[in-house]
Amino acid sequence: MSKDILKDIKGAIIDLDGTILDSAWVWDKVDEEFLGARGFDVPEHYVETISPMGAEKAAIYTREEFGLHNESVEEIVAEWFEMAKKEYRDDIVCKPFTKEYIKFLYDNNVRLSVATSSDRELFIPTLKREGILGYFSEIVTVDDVPAGKHSPDIYLECARRMGVAPSECAVFEDILTAVKSAKEGCFITVGVMDKKSLHNREKIEEIADLYIESFKDIL
């Protein structure tokens, strides 16, 4: 489908990690170091499984999956955050043409919100440093809604806060689970290419209303 599908949108809901932030490498490193220190390799579908979850639910899953019963959920989350904090503060940047597209939407009076499984403690410094925090009127994380990105809840909450109907709002996501959920919520869905989700590219392209390699494709 053509990018014309985005011509009349009144709202845009944008994921962070893998969609506008080039951050997959950080979580690959965290997963490898965290599990490696406990004698485990990263299983094939581990990242795909925990990506739609918030930190707490991902820690609960990890604790049960690897039998880490001598570690609390709070301790696991704290260790992950400590491992990732410096990279979010100093090193993670926006993907090419992301900032230009966000500014384009803002300048054309499109309401903007963030929908993320990440934690404010991590991503707020990144968005500030990259100069795009002020463009977003709303920031919603999976901790603000009953379910993670396996459900449309987070996108519906963003739309509600922006005062925009789902049918007039585009959701930009890089993972299959999230694209499916946005579609279930009756949003216009845009799949965004990211290396970590290339194995699901064909399925994402089938479901999404539009698939882009880069935000340059829709500028």
Rank of each mutant, 00 (worst) to 15 (best):
E100L: 09
R161E: 05
I9R: 10
S167E: 15
C169S: 15
A165M: 14
Y211M: 14
G39Y: 00
N200Q: 13
A24N: 11
I124P: 04
Y101W: 15
W27P: 07
E168P: 08
K95R: 15
E138G: 01
L68H: 05
A115S: 12
F123N: 00
K3D: 00
R129W: 06
E75Q: 15
S181I: 05
D90A: 06
T177A: 14
A84D: 08
Y135S: 01
A55D: 12
V114N: 01
S214F: 13
K195C: 01
T189H: 06
L156G: 06
S2R: 01
F34G: 09
M193E: 15
L35F: 10
I13Q: 03
K196R: 13
L21M: 15
A12K: 04
T116C: 11
I92T: 11
L16V: 06
E32A: 14
D144Y: 02
I139F: 02
Y211G: 10
R161N: 08
L219F: 05
P152S: 13
K149F: 11
V145A: 02
L198N: 05
D22I: 03
F136P: 02
I13Y: 05
I76S: 10
V77A: 11
I76A: 04
V192G: 13
G18I: 07
F66E: 04
F104K: 15
E44R: 11
T116E: 00
E184H: 08
M162I: 14
A182Q: 05
D31H: 12
A59Y: 00
D28K: 14
D144T: 02
S118M: 02
F40N: 02
I204C: 13
C169I: 11
W25A: 13
S214Y: 11
P166I: 13
I13M: 07
A147I: 02
I60N: 03
Y106L: 03
W27I: 03
D31P: 05
D174F: 12
E56T: 13
D194V: 13
N200S: 15
I204G: 12
L122D: 02
Y211T: 15
L68K: 04
I218P: 05
E74G: 07
R129V: 08
K7F: 10
I175P: 00
G191Q: 10
I50K: 06
P146F: 09
A170T: 08
K57M: 14
T98Y: 09
N200V: 07
L210C: 07
V145F: 07
S72V: 11
F97T: 13
C186H: 14
E56N: 03
F187K: 06
F136E: 04
H199S: 15
F97I: 07
D153V: 05
K128H: 01
E205F: 07
L176Q: 05
K195M: 08
E206I: 03
L176E: 13
N70C: 03
E173V: 10
V110A: 02
P152A: 14
S181T: 06
V26S: 01
P166C: 14
G18Y: 14
M162N: 12
E71G: 00
D22H: 14
D143I: 07
E79H: 13
V192F: 10
D217Y: 12
K3V: 12
D209G: 15
L122T: 06
C158G: 06
I204T: 08
E32M: 14
E205S: 13
F123Y: 15
A78P: 00
A55V: 02
R63T: 06
E202S: 15
